[in-house]
Design a protein around this nucleic acid. Structure first.
Length: 712
RNA sequence: GCGCCCGUAGCUCAGUUGGAUAGAGCAGCGGAUUUCUAAUCCGCUGGUCGCAGGUUCGAAUCCUGCCGGGCGCGCCA
């Protein structure tokens, strides 16, 4: 079935046309849920705004509209009542029989779990590319990745449920300049093993260097000199890289081993740069501060002589992905290896992208709101974005035009270039949407990658890159990549989000000022959830409830712990910052995961007990008490909620819906006995209503990636 | 300096494309229970929606200016 809201919109659209003919056609009827239940269930606010354009009193418009409605409704069974109120509000109250009918029509759980929500029609159906999570290789996931990962995941689930084709893309940072350091780090691990260094020697080295920095410049220079000498010796011992290559064939790195090595290299190079070490010592083949840059060049050159670098790179990606996947599984996030299309994937397209920019944007080009021109500036390939009047779209600190740089003066490509390549790959499709490019190199590279994904909509779930994305989007617009003959433009959206803050209202950090590791955050949450569960064990015994097994308690702790962290995040407005607070997110009261999960467990408890009694599958649903009507109505609003979430990409609206649903159930539960209902018919009806409420909660929580537990 | 985001109850936050008397939770106060899981429910108290103008039938929401906070502003991602 369609959502009640959609049905009402259709009905009022038709009524507008009936009442006002041509002038009433194509007007949004402005139907929405009522601001207050005393005004009914929904309201139509179109009369006030229409009064002006029709030169009529709003009240009169409303009266004619209501007449139109009754004509439309006269074709069938009336399913709602209308009443004009105030300046011209049309208040809508749904008939109880209609609600009962809709609820009854929801198929049994065995048939499907859509709860009557209709998937998108063929015409509405979109291919949506969702770019989210996107961690960097050789860095551990921290709270900074939390929002992108779980918001992106929820969006994927919701769009998928709504019937769209969702293509998840994990835009892994696997090609940046930091890779020189990672590979060099692996080389240090190799050299250390060969020398027989004890475990943890790289951490110790970093600590020593930090200590030297606290002491004096001289101490730092001495330390660097020793390190450099050792490094030169190790390099000389395996100049051909044969031993290193052999080592790589058998080496299985873990992220835990890679991270200290990376930090070591980073610390050494930073210190060498800062102290001017490279200038003071004679006869160096490569400056100590630039070894990793050199390694990056070797990696990016490719070729037979650099295959060790490539192999080390590959190993570091594998290790990072293993660590990420473990966390994704733990978080209940859908991302898998097949969704990974890192920056390196687009490497072969970059030269073509620059060629395309130079060719297509040689002179100011672009229809719409953005014009772009590509030219060399200080040796770099730059795209200057302009407004239609020729004024620069973006300005620097001195008011000078700020370009998007596609290629550095040293020839290296940047993430802008990669993002353009990725956008082309996502938009283009070998059959559905062949984007025309003039660069042969780009066309060939794209074809070699299969021709692209054919997105109608691309969502960038990334924080903190507004300016960059605006530039990239404007460039794409100017290049004409979004436009499609006979179809709407491809829609590119930056799904931005706010910071996770600590108690001090500053970005959440550990006491030592480091990013909080996601792994440790989840450990803590599970630990706290377990404490809550243990606390309630005693109460369970008092109440004579079935005891939970140790295994069950452990499982519940995981679900509550992870669910609470996710729900706390998803229930916030996506765009604003929020303060992270353990007590609040694990509280049983209010808009929290435990509250919703508890409501579900309570219903399931009824269900288990009812199952032993009379069968209720085909029971007649009768909503008698006000709380029953409220609950039933709420259940039926899942579809329209998801429509809004799919459009606004605001998971907090789904959370709000589920909280309202759980609260409606709790109210029902307080006043309406189910198993002890007065008569068999009422009992059967209520059991069925409970079942629908439980399924709605479970499906809704599922769309947030949160497991509903049978018992708590 | 310029650009973007934010400012709502003591605290943490909601508030779909402008709609009727601005809502939750926590905290505070007061109630309900021989429980279908009290990890609950109900009530009360609490607001110049940062400030000042404007747009209109109507503004927390749109526009302008100011105050306060955050982020960004050429070869990092």
């Amino acid at each position: 079935m369609k959502s009640m809201l959609a049905e009402l919109r259709e009905c009022f659209s038709a009524a507008l046309e009936t009442a006002f003919g041509e002038r009433g056609r194509g007007i949004d009827p402005l139907v929405k849920p009522s601001s207050d239940t005393k005004f009914g269930d929904y309201q139509c606010n179109v009369a006030m705004s229409l009064g002006k354009s029709l030169a009529m009193k709003p009240r009169e418009v409303a009266e004619r509209l209501v007449e139109g409605v009754s004509q439309v409704l006269s074709r069938g069974q009336p399913w709602f009542f209308v009443q004009i109120d105030g300046p011209g509000f049309v208040n809508i109250r749904l008939r109880r029989e209609y609600l009962e009918e809709l609820l009854s029509s929801i198929p049994a759980e065995q048939a499907d779990d859509r709860l009557g929500v209709m998937p998108a029609t063929a015409a509405q159906r979109q291919t949506v590319v969702v770019d989210y999570s996107s961690p960097n290789v050789a860095k551990e996931l921290h709270v900074g990745h939390l929002r992108s990962t779980i918001i992106g995941d929820t969006i994927c689930r919701v769009l998928g449920f709504c019937g769209h084709d969702v293509i998840r893309q994990n835009h892994l940072g696997d090609w940046g300049t930091q890779f020189g350091m990672v590979i060099l780090g692996i080389w240090h691990i190799f050299a250390g093993r060969k020398r027989g260094e004890p475990a943890g020697w790289l951490e110790q080295g970093t600590t020593e260097l930090a200590a030297a920095q606290q002491t004096s410049d001289k101490a730092v220079l001495d330390w660097l000199a020793r390190t450099y000498a050792q490094q030169e010796k190790d390099l000389a011992a395996d100049l051909e890289g044969r031993e290193f290559e052999k080592f790589l064939r058998e080496y299985v790195p873990t992220l835990d081993e890679l991270l200290p090595a990376y930090r070591f290299v980073n610390a050494v190079e930073t210190a060498a740069e800062k102290t001017g070490f490279d200038r003071t010592a004679e006869g160096k083949r490569i400056p100590l501060s630039a070894v990793s840059n050199y390694v990056v060049k070797m990696l990016q050159e490719g070729g037979e002589q650099n295959r060790q670098e490539r192999e080390a790179w590959r190993l570091s990606i594998r290790a990072s992905l293993d660590a990420c996947n473990a966390l994704y599984r733990r978080l209940g996030v859908l991302l898998v290896d097949e969704d990974v299309r890192g920056e390196s994937f687009y490497h072969e397209m970059l030269a073509g992208v620059v060629e395309e920019l130079k060719g297509r944007l040689a002179t100011p080009t672009g229809a719409g709101d953005a014009r772009a021109v590509c030219r060399l500036d200080k040796g770099a390939v730059c795209v200057f974005l302009e407004k239609p009047d020729g004024a620069p779209m973006f300005k620097g600190a001195q008011g000078d035009p700020l370009p998007m740089i596609a290629q550095k003066s040293d020839g290296a490509y940047l993430y802008s270039t990669t993002d353009l390549a990725a956008a082309l790959f996502r938009i283009s499709h070998p059959q559905r949407n062949r984007v025309e490019v003039t660069s042969r190199a780009l066309a060939d590279a794209l074809a070699a990658k299969g021709g692209g994904l054919g997105a109608d909509r691309i969502l960038y779930v990334v924080g903190e890159q507004r300016l960059h994305l605006q530039m990239v989007f404007a460039t794409i617009d100017a290049l004409g990549w979004k436009r499609r003959a006979g179809r709407p433009d491809v829609d590119l959206e930056h799904v931005a989000f706010g910071w996770v803050l600590g108690d001090d209202h500053k970005p959440l950090k550990t006491r030592t000022g480091e990013n909080v590791k996601l792994r440790e955050l989840l450990d803590e949450s599970e630990r706290r959830a377990r404490a809550l569960i243990d606390e309630n064990d005693a109460k369970r015994a008092e109440l004579g409830l079935e005891a939970l097994s140790e295994e069950e308690k452990r499982d519940i702790a995981l679900a509550v712990g992870i669910g609470s962290v996710k729900y706390a995040d998803l229930s916030q407005n996506r765009t604003t910052n929020y303060v992270f607070n353990w007590e609040k997110m694990l509280a049983m009261q209010g808009n929290t995961a435990p509250y919703l999960m508890y409501a579900y467990a309570r219903i399931r408890s009824i269900h288990r007990k009812a199952a032993s009694g009379a069968a209720t599958a085909g029971a007649v649903l009768a909503l008698t008490e006000p709380v029953e009507i409220a609950l039933g109505k709420h259940i039926l609003q899942l579809g329209e909620t998801l429509e809004i979430v799919a459009h606004t990409l605001a998971p907090n609206l789904l959370c709000e819906y589920l909280y309202g649903l759980a609260a409606a159930f709790m109210r029902f539960y307080e006043t309406c006995p189910v198993l002890q209902a007065g008569d068999e018919k009422t009992r059967a009806s209520r059991v069925r209503l409970c079942d629908l409420a439980a399924r709605t909660l479970r499906v809704g929580l599922g769309l947030l990636g949160i497991r509903a537990m049978e018992r708590m």
